[in-house]
Amino acid sequence: MLTITNLHARVEDKEILKGLSLQVAAGEVHAIMGPNGSGKSTLAGVLAGREAFEVTAGSVDYRGHDLLELDPEERAREGIFLAFQYPVEIPGISNSYFLRAAVNAIRKHRGEPELDAVQFLKLAKEKMKRLHMDEKLLQRAVNEGFSGGEKKRNEIFQMAVLDPKLAILDETDSGLDIDALQIVAEGVNALRGPDRGIIVITHYQRLLNFIVPDFVHVLHQGRIVKSGGKELALELEAKGYGWIETAQREPAGV
């Protein structure tokens, strides 16, 4: 579904990704872990098409498309969903208006009929129930005055409604208490399936107790330096990232 090969990207003059390669197949959940500044959010931004990140080398193939050639909205319409680390507040636009506009932009692209307000509401309410979300959030302005947990839950709710093929969760666990974390994880787990790929980007292992990944990758200085199964996350938790850094400095000792 997704093949990233030797990806280099920079922000302004600073090179952040330095030859990152990764393959995600449909049905798989990949966790990408790494210390601050390792390039986790840059990877998420590059995949979603954020302009501030400039790709200088490498390629990304997404379901047969050259992903880097697609505009951000085209990527979204082709089924890529980024759950933002810092969801943006849009005062004056209701959550339901925003999300229905998004659903219909995607449906139109797929050649499906657009949802009217009633059909949308039915779909939205069903998804909200699963995420233990208050229906009142639909009428509130997008993320405005939401608590940290509500914002993250709102991202997962959007994801559930938009039904992506590839979901990228950028530090969705940051700032969540354990209850909120569980709800978010339940929401993500409900979306696991043979047709969907999920990339979970996180600093901490904690989230991976609830969303158990098929693969864990360690990102360090813009490259994936170690990959393994779910037990790698536990190892990282026990040893910290310093262990990776040391291993990187002393490759002969591995």
Binding site: P72, V88, A102, Q158
Partner: peptide, 30 residues
Amino acid sequence: LEEAALFYCLARGLGPDQARQLLTYAFANE
């Protein structure tokens, strides 16, 4: 218009014109 807000709209599949229209409305709505 704030780049972060525009990108948020685009990342949800809205076209650039629609995103600008929406954010302009958001500005005026108060």
